[in-house]
Every structure is written in structure tokens, then in C-alpha cells.
Design a binder for these strands. Structure first.
Lengths: 263, 263
DNA sequence: CGAGTGATTGAGAAGAGTCAAGAGCGGTGG
DNA sequence: CCACCGCTCTTGACTCTTCTCAATCACTCG
């Protein structure tokens, strides 16, 4: 990466503002960046905290950072200093093996936290790459730890967020370890749907931000297999697929595909 | 990511070099229950803490619990109250789907931490089952959090342990998502070997505590496939397998198996 | 409008799964 | 001590899912 690109990337946004899932740049400049005003707060780090404690987070989260589509928020080996709350946009995290194999380990949407892979080793173990122009709130982890010692509720919340990440990963292990291709794709779609609902979007109709190849990588399948399964689902009237646009027609049908497993 | 990193990664606690020389089960049984005296302290929760801070953990960890082979330390749905440090023995963690599928999500050996799957939801999301008669130190999590607010080093350590668990899981996702059966088994063996070394055991000769079926479940393979691959490795003089007794003959050869297929 | 990605589809190959038989090991009880 | 049982492991033959390779189509962007 060039220094210029690096500088652009780490340039903080000076005038913090309120979070609305799809506000334009002009609006951003106008509103303050405070968790207490952010409409993602119920999904994000402050979730479950009371007004007072949220105010303590406000002190922490004063920087934002934009990441253009295709650029990375951080890369393997980068020094770890902060975790990030996605404000808008969409990310994938992935590792690249020396032989070139690239494994997507997760997708991240607004209100979700990125970067916890770096805490243990003090450098990042994953790449986080924007799948569309995105914006994140930068949460300096050392300061978060400091404030956590003063605000037990916040400490607890940090632990919960990390624990959920562990449980989530183990869900993916289950998916990769014991499900057939059809089931994997069904789980993937249903999971996306759920996450969109939680953000106030339609549960049944959405745009995939990632390519078939990225989906395949995440699910441990080849892109052709993903494509074939989308086609098969379409034939069976479970979903309507048009390139990246997905409409889920039969949630029950998709769920039935996977024995019983509900996430 | 390097192959070495991957092998390391699926190890729960990346230990800091200080290998412990030949601790046997008998020695462990003799020492009083204090982290500061424990042979495993360099691998376990206190790893990296100074004498003073370790003393604070001593106050926390006053209970131990024995778990007989085949019994569970905790089960899905149990109320979460503590995390556990394995003192002796061997555990697997697994989830069981309604349709009977059973996915092993990890194996846990002395010095490693179990139970962090429960923090987020306040109940456990996994089953932890002893593969041999085992003993764990019980660490009440609420008290750990309290003490953490007073001892920044400890808070940091808790975060590191959790983060490593996240990174470990992502290593397993990589394994399940993009490796062929042979590679998976090779990584599995090399990883076990590393973890035994860190505990002062032979890197090349050890007993598998788990069945072929459990290995298969963990690696996303059927038990027959695991068995066949062991046989193939034996034919190629990479390892000597006799039921559960494993001798690794050619570490380099096993490592070479990984990364032969480009994507 | 054309170039370049990304997506779909087909045919054939390969890897892993399934089913089944039998061997090895360890414990139990006659 | 031996025979038997139950469990785990090994091996073979066959099946089937998923991958690979390749051709073609669909969109997007300049």
C-alpha cells in the first residue's frame, strides 16, 4: 500500500455525526458522532447500556474513517490499536494463505464490530476489506479498556460482544463441518435476511454485496456450486435470484432444507 | 498467512515460548490450587502477568472440579457462571443439532480455557465433555470481571485469551473451508504436536484422546476418511499409527502436504 | 459500443461419503 | 484362562456430491 493511500485511509473525520444507515456525505458533516444519538446503538457496542454508560462511550468514539470499496480497513500484520463499528457499508474479513488461497471468514454490516482478531497478538490476523464505500467508527481499544475499568456495564458489554463472536464462529464451523452445499447456502441466506431485518430492512428482499466467489469462499464451496444452488432454489420457487438481487419467497422451505437447524 | 501460522492458530492459547519441562499428571496433582504455583501458569490465564497480578488471580481460583471421562463439564443451555482452566485431562466441545448431527468444535488440553462460549448469552452454547478423567479450575466470571477492573493487566489478559479464541476459530474455518481432507488431517496432527510440545511432552509421539469419529467431526470428514488418511500417511512414512498411538516421522513431509493445490 | 468482470450452465473427473464386512482391542464373567 | 461382547478401527466396493474446466451469457463502466 502506498503511503498516500495509507494516509487517506487513516485520516480521521473531524466532525463527528449521527449514524443513519444511508445518509449522504453532506448530512454526515452536520450531525454529531455520538453513540447516544446513533440509530444503530441498539445493535452496536452500546446495546443494553443505560444512558449514563452510553455517555462514557461517546467520549471514546470521536473518530470516523471512510473506506472505499475494495480498500482495506486493516490488513494482516497491521498493528492493532482499535476496533471498529461499521456505520454504513459492508465488509468482508478474510485471510490469504501463502499458496494464494483466500478464505473469507465473515461479512460485516452496520452495527457490527470488526477488528477483535487483533487483540490477542496486538496485530491483526485478518484483512478487513470494504465491499462498498463504507464508514466505520474507530474505537481505540486501550481507551476502551480504561473506560471499562470504570464502567462495569461497559466491560461486560465488551465481553459479550467478543463472546458472541466466538459463538458465531462456532456456528460457521458447524456449517462448514457438517452441512451439505444446499444447507450452507440456505443458512447463509436466512442469516443475511435476519441481519437485514434487525436493521430495519426487508427480510425477504435484499442486495448481495459480495460476489459468488466470496460467498463460495465463506461457505467452503466453489463459485459454480453457489451459482448452481441459487438456480436450483429458483427452480423450486424458494427464492428469486437476479444477479445480486435476492428475493426470498419461501422461508419455511429454506428452513426445511436444513434438517431443523435454526440459527 | 503462513502454514505455520495456521497450525499455530488453531491452538487455543498461543503460548509464549516458555516451554514447561516434563510435567506429569502426578506432579500436577501435588501442587496446591494456586495459579502462582501451578506448572501451567505460563500457558494458562496468568500467562504474561507479573507476580503481583497473579496473586490477584489466586484469590479468584479456589475451586476445582473433577470430571470423569464421558461426563460433561457443562451442557448447552446451562446457566453461565464460570470459565474453566483445564488442569489435567482432555476435553472436547461440541454442539448437537436436532437431527442428531454432532459437530466437535474443539479439543482442550491442560492450560487451555473452556467456557467462553457462555459469556455473551449468559448460558452455554456448547457442550464440554471430558475425553478422559479430568480436572479443571473454576474461575467465576463475575468475580473475574470485578478483579479485572482493579488489575488492568488481568483485564487485558482476559481480552487476549478471548481474542485468541476468535482467531483460533477463524483458523479452523480456513481449514474447513478451503482444505482437502489430507491437509486437514496434517494440520490437525501438527497442531496437536505443537500443543504437546508446549506442555513439555514429545512433539512426535503422543496418544490421541479422541476417536476417529470425533477427529472427523472436528475436521468436517467422516471417520472412514480419517482412518484412510492415517493409513495413507503411514504408507508414505509420514507417521506411524497404531490405534490411538501416533508417532510423527516426517514433520516436513506433513507440512509439504499443505499448499499443494492452488485455488 | 466494447472490454472486462461476474454469473450461469454443461460435461466429465475426482474426492469424499455410504454401506458393509471383518479385524483388533479391552473388559467381563463363566 | 478363555470365550464373548461391544466398541473402535480398517478396508473394500460403490455412489454421489462437489470440483474442474470450458463455453457462453449478462451487466457495468468507461
Amino acid at each position: 500500500m502506498t503511503t498516500a493511500a495509507l494516509i487517506r485511509q487513516i485520516t480521521p473525520i473531524r466532525n463527528p455525526t449521527t449514524a443513519l444507515a444511508n445518509i449522504g456525505a453532506r448530512d454526515i458533516a452536520r450531525c454529531p458522532t455520538h453513540c447516544s444519538n446513533c440509530n444503530l446503538r441498539e445493535l452496536c457496542l452500546p446495546c443494553g447500556l443505560t444512558g449514563n454508560d452510553v455517555a462514557r462511550i461517546d467520549e471514546l468514539v470521536y473518530t470516523r474513517r471512510r473506506v472505499k470499496r475494495g480498500e482495506s480497513l486493516y490488513r494482516v500484520g497491521d498493528k492493532f490499536s482499535s476496533i471498529y463499528a461499521v456505520r454504513s457499508g459492508f465488509f468482508k474479513s478474510c485471510v490469504i494463505l501463502e499458496d494464494g488461497r483466500d478464505q473469507v471468514t465473515g461479512f460485516c454490516m452496520p452495527g457490527e464490530i470488526l477488528g477483535m482478531d487483533g487483540i490477542g497478538t496486538e496485530e491483526h490476523n485478518l484483512n478487513a476489506i470494504a465491499l462498498e464505500d463504507s464508514e466505520v467508527c474507530v474505537i481505540p481499544f486501550a481507551r476502551l479498556e480504561e473506560v471499562s475499568t470504570l464502567v462495569p456495564g461497559l466491560q461486560r458489554q465488551v465481553h459479550k460482544v467478543m463472546s458472541r463472536e466466538i459463538v458465531r464462529d462456532q456456528g460457521v464451523m458447524m456449517l462448514l463441518g457438517s452441512m451439505r452445499a444446499e444447507e450452507r447456502v440456505a443458512v447463509f441466506l436466512l442469516n443475511l435476511s435476519q441481519r437485514f431485518v434487525a436493521r430495519g430492512y426487508s427480510p425477504s428482499e435484499f442486495h448481495l454485496r459480495m460476489t459468488r466467489e466470496e460467498i463460495g469462499s465463506y461457505l467452503g464451496l466453489k463459485l459454480e456450486t453457489v451459482s448452481r444452488i441459487f438456480s436450483r432454489f429458483q427452480e423450486e420457487d424458494l427464492v428469486a435470484v437476479q444477479q445480486k438481487h435476492i428475493r426470498i419467497l419461501d422461508v419455511a422451505g429454506l428452513k426445511k432444507l436444513m434438517g431443523q437447524k435454526l440459527n
